[in-house]
């Protein structure tokens, strides 16, 4: 299977590459529009700051390339946030694939540390992305911004300060706020499910 990873300025993609290799896939890391368009699956991972990442995508024409993808696409972490309409981080207009806005966590109690860092459980799993999984499975998170719950696009919820979207889906676009590549065997299952969509 031909799996491409979008190459841009929001690193650390090593862990995603390693996770795919453990599943027997040799991914192609590329910013080439043709290679991305013809891949069987595209991953859009990353960690970074929204406005800097978005500026880079626009400058390299990758914003339209990503919007035009027709195969299953999986955004991870900042990838998911960039696929939304707008992010509070740097007051950034994003790709607009999901008509949703990304907000910053507002702590309500002292225990509510921002970023959320660590393992939390996901519920209301309604997508083949979570085949073979049950409510309450733990996934690994590192993030300060989140996408609120939306009845049409949320395919998994997580609870931190408030219930929010742990994963989204619209047409061929999937996205997780958490890091499946760092979420042990549960995460491996999610990546495998994505490859089998």
């Amino acid at each position: 299977m031909d799996v491409a990873i979008v190459k841009y300025n929001a690193g650390n993609i090593y862990s995603v590459i390693n996770a795919l290799k453990r599943l027997g896939i040799e991914p192609t890391l590329t910013d080439n529009a043709e290679l991305l368009a013809k891949a069987d699956r595209v991953l859009f991972p990353g960690q970074g700051e929204a406005s800097t990442a978005m500026a880079y995508l626009k400058e390299h024409g990758l914003d339209q390339v990503i919007r035009d993808l027709r195969q299953p696409v999986l955004g991870i972490c900042i990838g998911q946030q960039l696929m939304c309409r707008h992010s509070e981080e740097g007051n950034t207009d994003c790709l607009g694939i999901f008509p949703l806005d990304v907000l910053r966590f507002q702590p309500e109690r002292h225990d509510d540390k921002v970023p959320q860092m660590g393992w939390n459980s996901i519920y209301q799993l309604v997508s083949p992305l979570f085949n073979g999984m049950k409510d309450g499975e733990f996934i690994y998170n590192v993030h300060s911004y989140y996408v609120p719950y939306h009845k049409d696009y949320t395919i998994a919820t997580c609870d931190y300060i408030l219930p929010y979207s742990a994963a989204l889906h619209k047409d061929n676009f999937y996205a997780t706020q958490f890091h499946p590549e760092k979420s042990g065997s549960v995460g491996e299952r999610i990546l495998k499910n994505f490859l089998e969509l």
Partner: peptide, 8 residues
Amino acid sequence: VAQEINIP
């Protein structure tokens, strides 16, 4: 470690 282990 990065190649073989799937937790942080």
